[in-house]
Amino acid sequence: MPLLRNGILEQTSHAYLLENDMAKPKTDSTAKVEAVVSLDRFLEMAADDSAVTTQQVWLEPEHDVALLAPYVKNLELICVHFPSFTDGRGYSHARLLSKRYSYTGELRAVGDIRVDHILFMLRSGLNAFQFEATPNEALLQTLLHRYNHNYQPTYKLPQAS
């Protein structure tokens, strides 16, 4: 699955929600699979210090991101799931994680991710995007540079590249 990260379109990375310790992600042979645990599973492990075996968490829209606040320093990847591109809860998750809880690792939008919205996702704090199909790169560049200014300065535009 194509992944846009740091302005570069990669083809081989793929985050999967590991439903429980037994689940085995299905994948094609070339993909590198990252097992990501649900918020509940992560918190369970975190409650028992010695059991934390991953720093990769998957958030659903209905999750309370504040629960992750104590752990963000060590987290490497947070997947924010958008079951539909019209479900805007993930934007608030991203805003809180990046702004309030100072999370600086990868904040990846997964699910129904469409190119016309990624500029706004970026400005909310998401910094990686997992697409179902490979987007047109020229189009991506146009969309990412569409607006030179914005009315919400604390939702920063990505650095011009």
Binding site: Y91, M121, Y151, Q152
Partner: peptide, 13 residues
């Protein structure tokens, strides 16, 4: 008007 125009967080309520 300015603040709410294409607000990144509140465009998919």
């Amino acid at each position: 008007r300015q603040w709410s125009t294409l607000h990144p967080e509140f465009n998919w309520l």
